[in-house]
Amino acid sequence: MAAVFQFFYSSLIFKITFPALLAGLLLSSSVLQASVIEFSVDELAAETVLPVFDNSVSVRNRLVTKTGRFEVGLSGGLSLNEPFYGPSHFALHGAYHLSEVHGLQLSHTQWLGGLSTYGEQLSIGGPGGSPAPFDPSLAPQVEGLTTLNYQASLFYGKISLSKQLVMNLSIYGLAGFGAVGLSRGAGSKLAAHAAVGQNIFITPDLAFKFDIRLFSYRGPDPTTQVLNPSGPAPDPSTFGEDLYFNTLINFGLVYLL
């Protein structure tokens, strides 16, 4: 049996639309042959106010429900402000949603290692390279970040990418603490972590994920030592320390169990 109803409405809040994408889809041949359904303008929405109910919640019968559900996710991304080391990383996370808003999340991010383009250039001495070679790989670098976070799913909405494809979205914030693991036996350091992200649900259980994360820790500063590529790696304890604020951007998938 086909769908019971097909309804449409014109909406001003809660939802986002992409007219450009929509226009493209409208030009498909099947649409050009379509029948036109016209509504009396009198019957179309003319107000931007909301109806008054005793218990005015924004949405009922949510398609995506989170309360009491576990969430797992896999994502990959880049560090945005890392000068010396490889920015690529992948992340895994698991979360439990206490309610539609509140949840707890455990997350681990693992860097793929290596040096950034700038790091490579600095480490190469001579023509085309740095006049004074500086090899950051000889200093301890962040290998992984593990954090326990509080997650607040602050916004639930839906997005129309075409007149046929409507997806739910959820915007969330994260804040927590954890530790960064350092290479070269430098141990681990306490880290603070915060993020904002958005899930765009393809189905009620599966979503694309996009987030921007900020983590901060006090760790060894490579520039406090002479890091000659041909020389030995200094002892990690000899590095001076600095406070770092790193920004990461991540894309991935989330599945609600």
Partner: peptide
Amino acid sequence: WPFRGEYWL
């Protein structure tokens, strides 16, 4: 916006 089962205020 096709109706997909959830109701918005």
